[in-house]
């Protein structure tokens, strides 16, 4: 925990394709970093189709949204929803009844700069697609996390997004592979992590296994990192530690039976991450 420089770091989480786990990633990395003691803000930029409030379980606490902040109807402070479970975490909600053209990249940049004054990390949850919402989201960040699945259309979209980030002068682009099923990789029916890094040629930040607990947590509105039995939770926690600058080895994805044994064993003497 030595991240107390004058300004925080803004990280955009993007993917091109929808449904690969951007919002889940934002929710879990932000809660994990908040639990580690950092001050974290999350901006939902999927205006018109907001999700982050639901995934974080904060939907009943939303009063104002980012468009109202930009249009001067409320202050940034008023719009931020504090997560009572994680004192360091605040969410800036998206507007549900507006659309992506109602804000500009410059306005997002301004809001993000103000957040960086106060928070160690600012996550920008980017909408799917490469249109205005994507442009709004990438205007403000210092680095990018590209989320993909080991699925051919998701990888193609990720490649397109990486190309667009490079054109936008990003030089810190990181890959997060979500929903990996190791048994399918082994049986030759799913692309491996090595396959994906060979196709996409960017830094690998993390690997998150397919995990039913993710849906269960989402149903409850609880971030999965609270579930100590979940492989995905462990993966997200590892990634959060990597973001904070720690060198954490990648999870060795093994078959589920092996995993459940290891987990029981691991909890008895390994430090939990």
């Amino acid at each position: 925990m030595e991240k107390n420089q004058s300004k925080g770091e803004a990280i955009v989480v993007t993917s091109g394709k929808g449904g690969v786990g951007k919002t889940t990633t934002v929710a879990n990395l932000s809660t994990s970093l908040a639990e580690m003691g950092y001050k974290v803000a999350v901006m939902d930029l999927d205006i018109g189709l907001k999700k982050l409030d639901l995934i974080l379980g904060l939907e009943n606490r939303v009063i104002y949204d980012i468009v109202q902040v930009i249009e001067g109807e409320c202050t940034l402070k008023q719009a931020l929803v504090k997560d009572k479970r994680f004192p360091g975490l605040s969410m800036l909600p998206a507007a549900q009844t507006r659309n992506k053209d109602d804000i500009t990249p410059e306005q997002v940049q301004q809001v993000c700069e103000s957040l960086k004054e106060e928070f160690d990390y600012v996550f920008l949850d980017c909408p799917a697609g490469i249109e205005q919402g994507f442009k709004n989201a990438i205007a403000a960040a210092d680095k990018a996390i590209v989320v993909t699945n080991p699925e051919i259309s998701a990888v193609r979209d990720a490649d397109r997004i990486i190309g667009m980030l490079e054109s936008a002068q990003y030089n810190d682009i990181n890959l997060l592979v979500n929903r990996v099923q190791n048994d399918m990789v082994k049986s030759g029916n799913m692309m491996s992590i090595e396959d994906l890094t060979e196709h996409l040629c960017i830094n690998l930040l993390g690997i998150v296994p397919e995990d039913k607990n993710v849906l269960i947590s989402t149903n409850k509105g609880e971030p999965i990192i609270l579930n100590q039995r979940s492989q995905a939770a462990q993966a997200f926690n590892n990634i959060a530690h990597r973001i904070s600058g720690e060198d954490v080895p990648f999870l060795q994805l093994e078959d589920v039976s092996f995993w459940s044994k290891l987990r029981g064993l691991g909890r008895s003497f390994l430090p939990t991450r």
């Binding site: 051919i152 990888v155 029916n189 396959d195 196709h199």
Partner: peptide
């Protein structure tokens, strides 16, 4: 199918 996915991706990308 993993091999086929990789081959198709290589061309498309």
């Amino acid at each position: 199918s993993r091999r086929q996915a990789n081959d198709r991706l290589r061309v498309v990308l």
